[in-house]
């Protein structure tokens, strides 16, 4: 995107630029979070709910340094994806043929969802803080860590259903998003929804280490961020051209 020289200092240009900064937090911190994900010694394969308390305690004492590195990184950088989702809110608020109630509901759900994401890594870190604790206690912390990391998909499911509905209702002459983004948002919500079962099931595809709850959920989330990065980049470019601040 080439910002026009005469538009350089206009507020509407700054609006585009700050959205671009927020948008680019996604690839930058996405890479950081991917490294944190790859570094966690309990994701390949994901730790089984079948592990005994002694095995869980041994896991935390054997891999303390990597667990700390991974989860401190999640702690520091996980919420840095929030600016990316706020760009979606801002773009939902540009939709001309609706009231913007979807955008405010999306924002409320996004903040609630972020509080849970911010909580899960604390449990891993507390378990790793004193791995020589009574193994029953380490297992309790590990159970809560996994459950709160994998199961609470409700906020994200609601956000994507709202985004899908907003795209469908944005049926004026110049829609913000292409229509397939609505289908894609809803498909992502459906792919992530079954992971709520991780709060209940201890074996099978819905357990927190299962194909559906772990791999499908996390892959669908990661893919959504990647796809929406390119979608939003195009949307921002068009907004900049429409507002006469870029070519």
């Amino acid at each position: 995107m080439q910002i026009l020289a005469e538009a350089e200092d206009l507020p509407k240009t700054a609006n585009i630029k700050t959205q671009l900064v927020s948008l680019w937090t996604a690839p930058v911190f996405g890479v950081v979070l991917l490294i944190a994900f790859l570094a966690f010694p309990g994701f390949f394969p994901p730790m089984s709910p079948d592990m005994t308390a002694e095995q869980v305690a041994k896991f935390y004492s054997d891999h303390t340094a990597l667990i700390r590195f991974s989860m401190i990184t999640f702690n520091l950088c996980g919420i840095m994806l929030l600016p990316f989702f706020i760009v979606i809110v801002i773009q939902m608020k540009r939709m001309a043929t609706q009231s913007h109630v979807f955008a405010y509901c999306y924002l409320t759900a996004a903040v609630s969802g972020a509080t849970l994401f911010a909580l899960a890594d604390i449990f891993y870190l507390v378990a790793a803080f004193r791995p020589d604790r009574n193994p029953e206690l380490v297992m309790l912390l590990n159970d809560m860590a996994w459950m709160i990391f994998i199961a609470p998909v409700g906020a994200f499911v609601a956000m994507n259903l709202l985004l899908g509905a907003a795209v469908y209702f944005d049926d004026g002459p110049s829609p913000v998003f292409p229509r397939w983004v609505g289908h894609y948002a809803i498909a992502t919500a459906l792919a992530m929804a079954p992971a709520a079962g991780a709060a209940v099931f201890a074996t099978g595809p819905l357990a927190w280490n299962g194909v559906v709850s772990f791999w499908l959920r996390n892959a669908a989330f990661a893919l959504f961020v990647v796809v929406m990065f390119f979608v939003l980049r195009n949307v921002l470019h068009r907004q900049a051209v429409d507002e006469g601040v870029a070519t």
Binding site: A109, G113, F156, A158, A193, A199
Partner: peptide
């Protein structure tokens, strides 16, 4: 508890929607 709260973690985004429309 498993049935009820298992469903709650799936639908809790509804709370965001209920609060969002009041804010709207």
């Amino acid at each position: 508890i498993k049935i009820g709260f298992g469903i709650l973690v799936l639908i809790v985004g509804g709370a965001g929607i209920a609060n969002g429309i009041v804010a709207y």
